Amino acid sequence: MSFAPRSPADIVALIGAHPLAWVISRDFDATPLPLLAECDADGRLVSLFGHYARRNPQVAAFERDPAALILFSGPQGYVSPTLVAKPHWGATWNYAAVRVTAEMAFVPAETDASVRRLAAHLEPEGGWRVEAMGARYDQLARQIIAFRATVTGCEATFKLGQDEDEDTFAQIVRDHPDRALARAMQDQAP
């Protein structure tokens, strides 16, 4: 059974809805960072855009060796046998995850854009804007540096009940307490 997403758009949607990723350098240092997906004209993921605190040791690590592993986790959760009308059905864990390998490049000229684009993505319409910080924004912006991680590989696993029979799948979707997980299952339904 393949647990591949239905389309590359599903990968981009997962990153958009769950932007916090673990960014891991070759020395196994790791930092959780919110990232933005950048796509080509066909909607395929080509890079991830974000920023680091300049004092983070990974900045120097990536300047020495730009290879990165970036891990995203989407909807996920335990699926109890109590949700299913089969007496011998076993518990499982459903999840959607994306594993990206990338080459990091720091782009200091895009630091302001990284903050503004991330805020625009995360804030509701008419929400917070960097201008609300006044002069403090310039002071803080000097302490961060933008980067673009060019995707060299991407693997996604959307294990969301596709291997269940129709009745079992329907029972889980209907009764699972995590409605976000149930919606993700419906989106990837066989």
Rank of each mutant, 00 (worst) to 15 (best):
F3W: 10
S7T: 15
S7L: 03
A9Q: 12
V12K: 00
V12A: 04
A13D: 14
I15W: 00
I15M: 00
A17Y: 10
P19A: 09
P19C: 09
L20K: 06
A21N: 03
W22Q: 13
W22F: 11
S25E: 14
R26M: 09
D29N: 12
P34A: 13
L35Y: 03
A37K: 01
E38D: 14
E38K: 11
E38G: 02
E38W: 10
C39H: 02
C39Y: 01
L45A: 03
V46H: 03
S47F: 02
S47R: 13
L48I: 00
G50R: 00
A53F: 13
A53D: 12
R54Q: 08
R55T: 13
N56Q: 04
V59G: 00
F62M: 03
F62S: 01
E63M: 02
D65P: 09
A67G: 09
A67S: 09
L69I: 09
S73I: 10
S73K: 08
G74K: 00
P75L: 05
Q76M: 10
S80G: 10
T82F: 08
P87S: 14
P87F: 04
H88N: 08
H88R: 10
G90P: 03
T92H: 04
T92N: 14
W93A: 11
N94C: 02
Y95Q: 06
Y95A: 12
A96F: 10
A97C: 09
T101N: 10
A102C: 08
M104N: 08
A105C: 08
A105L: 05
A105Q: 03
P108R: 01
E110L: 12
T111W: 00
A113V: 06
S114K: 01
S114G: 11
R116M: 09
A120F: 06
H121I: 06
L122A: 11
L122S: 06
L122V: 11
E123R: 01
G126F: 10
R129E: 12
V130C: 06
G134Y: 04
A135Q: 12
A135C: 06
Y137A: 07
Y137M: 06
D138V: 05
L140M: 15
Q143A: 15
Q143Y: 07
A146F: 02
R148P: 11
R148F: 05
T150N: 14
T150M: 04
V151G: 08
V151M: 13
T157K: 14
T157N: 15
T157Y: 03
K159M: 09
K159I: 06
D163S: 10
E164P: 05
E166N: 05
D167R: 08
F169W: 11
A170I: 05
A170Q: 12
I172R: 00
V173A: 15
V173C: 13
H176L: 07
P177D: 13
D178G: 07
D178T: 02
R179I: 04
A180F: 04
L181C: 04
A182G: 08
A184N: 02
A189G: 05
